[in-house]
């Protein structure tokens, strides 16, 4: 807007925006603060905000008692593994749809999108039974496969929209310049595709990390990722808020940082390229 903004107006807007932003962020901040309190301080009334005896004890306890590291590792394996698997399947598909589209390309894309619309509960029963019969319940392999499949449409779509932005003329220029197929891929396509693939990866890791329907229903103790592990705090004994906070902080911080880096891609990925 061409209007001149007075400093007073800017200050007022800043004040309102910061207040609202801190209110929205508060539950996360509160969780992080509580994770450094003793259990007594965690439930005290009136609550203590900053002036308490900071302690790392909860983090140690969470690890000791419930093997946090193992569940964190499960989360990493499931989110990264499913992402890599989905990329492996999706990259060639997105590639050929973007660079040599046929008259079916659009229909295939739309159909892939439609599979994402299917509610998980619609197939919970057969998937659960198949997993039980095939011995896949509570295994990392089973979850990696499921996560890769449920996110495959988003991965194909995101890659497709990124690949689509690589101008065809550049590939033609490379061919005129004497690049063979392998040189074309190594020197031209790959460097141009890497940012798109990396963004897709990032978003997919975030989505898989936070997925809490299949992970809750298909895992028990062994393969449970952090989503399921945290859920086990819903029926605890005794004082547990500080420990819950410590476990929660560890579960959300890494992904929060990743998420902050992927704001733009997030919009594009989750809207299937409809909003950029």
């Amino acid at each position: 807007m061409a209007r001149a903004h007075t400093p007073a107006r800017k200050a007022a807007i800043s004040a309102v925006a910061w207040t609202v932003a801190l209110l929205i962020f508060f539950p996360i901040l509160w969780t992080v603060l509580t994770s450094f309190k003793t259990e007594g301080q965690a439930v005290s009334t009136p609550p203590v905000f900053v002036f308490f005896d900071w302690t790392w004890e909860n983090y140690a306890t969470v690890q000791e008692r419930s093997n946090y590291a193992r569940h964190a590792m499960n989360s990493v394996v499931i989110s990264v593994g499913s992402t890599l698997l989905a990329l492996l399947i999706a990259v060639p598909a997105a590639w050929s749809m973007a660079f040599s589209p046929t008259k079916h390309t659009k229909n295939i894309l739309m159909w892939m999108l439609s599979t994402k619309m299917m509610p998980a509960v619609g197939v919970l029963v057969p998937i659960y039974l198949l997993f039980r019969d095939w011995g896949l319940l509570d295994t990392l392999g089973g979850l990696v496969a499921v996560m890769a499949l449920i996110n495959l449409p988003i991965v194909v779509w995101m890659l497709y929209t990124y690949f689509k932005e690589i101008p065809g003329e550049i590939l033609e220029a490379a061919r005129m310049d004497g690049a063979g197929l392998s040189a074309e891929i190594i020197h031209v396509l790959a460097p141009m595709a890497v940012p798109g693939i990396a963004s897709t990866m990032l978003l997919n890791v975030i989505l898989a990390w936070n997925e809490a329907f299949w992970t809750l229903n298909l895992t028990a103790a062994k393969a449970a990722p952090l989503t399921a592990f945290i859920a086990s705090y819903s029926s605890p004994e005794g004082l547990f808020w500080a420990k819950l906070s410590a476990a929660s902080t560890m579960a959300i911080l890494p992904i929060l940082v990743l998420g902050w880096f992927s704001q733009k891609q997030l919009v594009r990925g989750l809207t299937f390229g409809a909003v950029k």
Binding site: W18, I24, N210, T227, I252, L258, Q263
Partner: peptide
């Protein structure tokens, strides 16, 4: 401000529910 506002989206549902 933007980072603070979008943060809740990255909190896994089980954590946000329990917190």
């Amino acid at each position: 401000v933007r980072l603070l506002v979008i943060a809740p989206f990255f909190v896994m549902p089980t954590v946000s529910a329990l917190v």
